[in-house]
């Protein structure tokens, strides 16, 4: 992770998803920025920070599974069993 200010401050272009959500990074939703103009305004968010949170969230969720059980059962697999 080489840090360059200009790169960090240039997120990928916006794509609209719904009236209230957009994406910039693949599979990462963000609020429609127009909804954060009156009461709470968005912070400066370098790319590394967005990606850090997204990855940490995934890490945390995996941790929470492990914390409660040794293994997670796949519903897709069980549904295949039903079909057989």
């Amino acid at each position: 992770m080489k840090y360059r200010y200009q790169e960090e401050m240039s997120p990928p272009p916006v794509q609209r998803v719904t009236d209230v959500a957009i994406t910039r990074f693949e599979h990462v939703f963000e609020v429609e920025p127009g909804l954060m103009t009156e009461h709470v305004t968005q912070q400066t968010f370098p790319n590394w920070d967005t990606l850090r949170l997204v990855r940490s969230r995934a890490d945390h969720l995996a941790w929470m599974h492990r914390h409660f059980a040794d293994k997670v059962i796949s519903g897709e697999e069980l549904l295949d069993d039903l079909d057989e």
Binding site: H65, F68, A69, D70, K71, V72, L78
Partner: peptide
């Protein structure tokens, strides 16, 4: 016992 498996459909 800590559960071996979790399923949460």
């Amino acid at each position: 016992p800590k559960p071996e498996a979790e399923f949460s459909p």
